[in-house]
Nucleic acid binder design. Structure first.
Lengths: 209, 209
DNA sequence: GGAAAATTAGAACGGTCGTGCTAATATCAG
DNA sequence: CTGATATTAGCACGACCGTTCTAATTTTCC
């Protein structure tokens, strides 16, 4: 049963593993540089220096490749961020670690993040609706809202709408990739420090000023 | 000299004005609904119930049409927002009006804003670089940074990095279109009130808590 | 070293893109 | 009403899209 059309069943060969990794990396670079719409199979294959058909040989199609790009990047990000947040003891410190860890990961994985955002904003199903769009970031925001809720219950945070605060935090974090790519003068450390301070004030109880 | 290829020279006829307005509106609707990449000339013409060539008859090409979509929306937005900000006397009130006016306009022009963001994020020149991207929002942020600077000089605001604060404010405002389009339960008034309160705290002087 | 399998290049397919051209129709001035 | 002009539909064009197919080449294994 092996032979025909693509590697299946048997364990991946050395060449297969190397090609898959190469193609995923080339897809990331191409999407980040040219944008999702311009990242055609021909472009990605050209960057890898191979023929188009190699892509459909190792992946069932372009969608498969895109999917694997996303899962790889998300796995990397989660592995970096989760332990750094979990290490902190108070909710306020966890929120600070949340912001800092995100910005550290983003600033050291700029092309990956640019690719993720291009895909999230543009990849659509055949019926025209966004494949990962609209509600795909909801679980992320929901988790963040949970953290904010615990901070309010414990009295560490003041009164505010948690969903609006979560949106503001996420959007401020996700602003970094385009910022850094269009302006190399942007300093990720400064950005992290200022954002931590900004939302530290924003989550405080109203102290009659 | 009249005749050949498109209306030029003479003043626009009734039909011309109507068609241009219709096509701009259809472009907005199509881009907002299907995304920029899927908003082909054929799609836009189909929505208008006319032939593709009518578009290239009234506009020099697709780029021209897109450009007019942007200028129309930006003009509308500026006419709504500018006087509301200018009416306030203190910097803090002006910042509040800035946020509120933006959210009011956005929530009442959702499809327009969705179209603008699709275009800004995706429209590229032939060499592959974003046409309105990267640095196109710089003047907007710069103006906002100026407002923040005046607030710090007058002592109304505390100490913070103005460019980071400007990014956070803009990103929080620009989050509204996708929020409202994916979740009809989102309340623009609540969002405006909470955002005003959030950045009111964030711009305050550190009051030792 | 030779057969079988894995991997690759390259061409071909049907489809959509934006634009240009042509011929038919609608509008309007005289 | 009529001729000129504005407007429109429809097709053709070259380009690129993602996928499929075939044939050639490389690798693997006995």
């Amino acid at each position: 049963m092996p032979t025909k059309s693509g590697p299946e069943g048997r364990k991946a060969s050395f060449i297969e593993e190397a090609r898959r990794a190469q193609l995923i990396q080339c897809a990331i670079d191409t999407i980040a540089e040219l944008g999702f719409a311009q990242a055609s199979v021909a472009q990605i294959a050209g960057r890898a220096g191979i023929s188009k058909s190699v892509i459909t040989y190792y992946f069932s199609g372009k969608d498969e490749l895109i999917r694997q790009v996303l899962t790889q990047i998300f796995t990397d990000a989660h592995r970096y961020i989760a332990p750094r947040v979990g290490a902190e003891q108070t909710v306020r410190l966890r929120l600070q670690a949340y912001i800092r860890a995100h910005i550290e990961f983003i600033s050291t994985h700029l092309t990956q993040m640019a690719a993720v955002m291009e895909i999230a904003a543009n990849h659509r199903t055949e019926d025209g609706s966004l494949r990962w769009g609209g509600t795909a970031d909801r679980p992320v925001r929901t988790a963040l809202e949970g953290m904010l809720a615990r901070g309010q219950e414990s009295g560490e945070f003041g009164a505010f709408d948690r969903s609006v605060m979560a949106v503001a935090i996420r959007r401020a974090i996700d602003a970094l990739p385009p910022l850094m790519m269009s302006d190399p003068a942007v300093d990720a450390e400064v950005y992290a420090r200022e954002l931590v301070a900004l939302f530290d004030r924003a989550t405080r109880k109203e102290s009659n000023g």
